[in-house]
């Protein structure tokens, strides 16, 4: 019984310091110094309305936009998740076929795998640079732009997330599409 009393005192103290104190401290630092990231890296459109988060994929279905990776949760930012299918699963194969069809991939024009494979949270905001370049022709055509300009835009938007450690460059789809609007 005495042990329980001691436990309750310590529980209260840890709750006070490690939860209330700690969370408040981190919150204060975050909101004061890094308000953008601290609130979800939200992006506002021309009218000041929130159009999304730089870090969260959103659905793009129009041919004039770059499309993100498939999402097992249909880009639901409030209930994220992956497919949780085995890479040997027929369901994955079916999605692979669907994507091949959607992008019109052929053995001569191989679809980069990231455009066929769903991400862990279903909200991966990036696609590979190859995946973006794969789409430039379609985007340029739909928008009536010079494919070379679109391609140049992809190349300037793409970056190496880990520098030397990640030779494969990636592109943030929302940022790419926003930049596309500016062209």
């Amino acid at each position: 019984m005495q042990s329980l009393l001691a436990s309750i005192r310590i529980a209260a103290m840890t709750m006070l310091i490690c939860v209330a104190g700690y969370a408040t401290a981190v919150w204060a630092v975050a909101q004061a110094a890094f308000p953008d990231g601290a609130n979800g890296s939200l992006v506002t459109g021309r009218g000041g309305a929130i159009v999304g988060s730089r870090q969260i994929a959103q659905a793009f279905t129009q041919p004039g936009s770059f499309w993100p990776r498939p999402s097992a949760v249909d880009y639901n930012g409030a209930a994220a998740g992956g497919s949780n299918k085995s890479p040997t699963s027929p369901d994955i194969a079916a999605r692979g076929r669907e994507m091949v069809e959607r992008y019109g991939a052929t053995p001569q024009f191989l679809l980069p795998a990231d455009l066929a494979a769903a991400s862990g949270a279903g909200l991966d905001p990036h696609i590979s640079e190859a995946g973006a370049l794969y789409q430039t022709a379609r985007v340029a055509q739909a928008r009536g732009l010079d494919p070379a300009r679109v391609e140049a835009l992809v190349r300037t938007t793409a970056f190496s997330p880990g520098g030397y450690l990640t030779p494969d460059r990636i592109v943030n789809v929302l940022e790419l599409n926003l930049a596309l609007e500016m062209l």
Binding site: S83, A93, V100, L110, A113, A117, D124, S128, P161
Partner: peptide, 19 residues
């Protein structure tokens, strides 16, 4: 599951992974 499909898989198994 992508075997036999026209998909370029040089990056390995990307299902469930973040770019």
């Amino acid at each position: 599951a992508f075997a036999g499909l026209p998909i370029d898989q040089t990056l390995g198994n990307l299902e469930g992974k973040e770019m």
